[in-house]
Structures are given as C-alpha cells and as structure tokens.
C-alpha cells in the first residue's frame, strides 16, 4: 500500500516552530525541521512514506510569494514531491490573480493551494478573494486551511463556497469532531488531514459516519512526527479498502481532479 502524505513542510522556522495545540492556542517548541527537500525525503524513506504534498515554512515566516518560489525550486525534478502554493487577495497583491493561478497550476507539480488569512491580514470571504475561490472551485483545486486562529474563517468561506474542495489541516491534538462532523455533513468536498488526528478510534468513528473518502493521510511534519500518523492508520480497525483510500487513493483522486 502506498502512503502519500497530504501535508508536510520544508524549511527551518525563524526561531522555533509554532505548533497548534488547539485553535487559538499554540505552543512554541524546537522540533527537528527538514532544511530542504532532501532532508524531508530522508525522513520519508525512514518512515516508509512514498510521496508528499509539501509547502515551505517561508510562506508563513517571510511571505507567500517568497515561499512559493522556494517550494517550486525544492520540488522541481523530485518525482515524490508535489507542491502547494500560498495565495493572497489579487485585488491588493499582484501576481495572485486568476490568470496567474492558471499559469501556476498548468504545472502538474502544483496540486493544491493554501491561505493564511490571519497572518496576512485579509478576510477569507467573497468580498476579498471571491474571484480566486470561484476559480478554485471550478478547477477543483484543493485549498488547505488551518483553524489555528479559530474555525470561523473555515465555516464562513464554506458557507459562501459550498462546493470548494477544502482540506482541514494543522488543527492540533485536541479532538475536533464537533467542528469536523458538521463540516463533513454539510459540504461534500471537505476533507480532513489525519496528521493531528489522535482521538481513540476516531478514524473508525469518522469512517462509519462519512465513509473513508474524506480522510487524507497526512503527517503535518514537522509539527508532528511521521511515525505517529503512520501508526494511527496502520492500527485503525477499518477495512483494507478504507485504509488504502486514506493512505493514498483519496489524495490521488484530488490531484487527478484538478483542471489545468
């Protein structure tokens, strides 16, 4: 069975790593960070992970444009790594308009996008990024969102764009069923990165209620190590078909669905 990590990060943090414990509460701790794609691949080899969708810490610490350049360089020529890019509102920021995105996503290495509205000080809604979200919905580009500063943005944007393909990531170790379940029930294209998924028999409970098509194996590396999420998936009491969906098939489907 192939393991594809839906979300791992490359690059050193400026000081320490800011880690989501649960929404609105973070811990800053020194973790082992992969300085580049080579270091990430070495850890993937050690843990038996075949491929990964990656982003760069500089997208957060410096700027989306700077980090995007780095992640495209890091993934170039590396077959096991797919890139995700960070976006800003095109009404204020050049280089993030829909024509720009069409060009970026014409590269098959680029398979997903991310938005960090709080740290980049914009509203994640139709008024601010409506044209981008319409394009992403139409092109079926997965948008990775973290509730690190609260869940309101995620609930809000999905209310306005109910068909958006969204992946909830980096949500902390506290169980989040009271957020996940309503979103999964209301929006068919909402998916959950399992990197932080630590509830006892939580994977089993989610699969029973929503099927296995909505969970994506992820490590949230290096905020999380790779061994924990691998063991959660390997130890889950689910069918092998469900396990394979989570391990690789769901993310492969999302990548294949992106219209270029």
């Amino acid at each position: 069975m192939r393991l594809i990590d839906c979300s791992a990060c490359i690059g050193y943090g400026g000081v320490n790593r800011r880690i989501v414990n649960h929404e609105n509460y973070t811990v800053t701790e020194r973790v082992d960070e992969p300085k580049d794609a080579g270091a990430l691949l070495a850890e993937m080899d050690f843990c038996g992970i075949d491929a990964a969708v990656v982003y760069h810490q500089a997208m957060l610490d410096v700027s989306p444009a700077y980090g995007n350049d780095l992640i495209l360089k890091e993934t170039a020529g590396r077959e096991r790594l797919y890139a995700s890019v960070a976006l800003l509102p095109p009404v204020s920021d050049e280089g993030f308009g829909v024509p720009d995105l069409r060009r970026v996503f014409s590269d098959k290495k680029v398979v997903a996008a991310r938005m960090y509205p709080k740290i980049n000080r914009f509203m994640l809604n139709r008024v601010t990024v409506g044209e981008v979200l319409e394009y992403m919905t139409e092109a079926r580009i997965p948008l990775f969102l973290s509730p690190s500063d609260g869940w309101e943005d995620i609930f809000g944007v999905l209310k306005e764009f109910p068909d958006l393909t969204a992946v909830i990531t980096n949500y902390g170790l506290w169980g989040s069923d009271r957020y996940f379940y309503p979103l999964a029930r209301a929006y068919k294209n909402v998916h959950i990165d399992t990197g932080d998924f630590q509830e006892i028999r939580g994977v089993e409970a989610f699969v029973r209620q929503f099927g296995s098509g909505r969970l994506l194996f992820g490590t949230n590396y290096p905020m999380d190590n790779m061994g924990g999420p691998v063991a959660v998936l390997a130890g889950a009491r689910i069918s092998e078909a469900d396990r394979e969906n989570i391990a690789c098939k769901n993310i492969e489907r999302l990548i294949a669905e992106v219209k270029r």
């Binding site: 050690f46 843990c47 170790l173 506290w174 169980g175 630590q198 509830e199 006892i200 028999r201 939580g202 190590n225 790779m226 061994g227 924990g228 999420p229 691998v230 063991a231 959660v232 390997a234 130890g235 889950a236």
Partner: peptide
C-alpha cells in the same frame, strides 16, 4: 484524550 497508537508510533518511528 489520545489514541495510544499515535504515541506508540512516535516511539516506533524514532
């Protein structure tokens, strides 16, 4: 609170 498999995996994967 948390799945023992996660912590087991953290130890196994170290």
């Amino acid at each position: 609170w948390y799945d023992p498999n996660y912590c087991i995996g953290s130890v196994l994967g170290a």
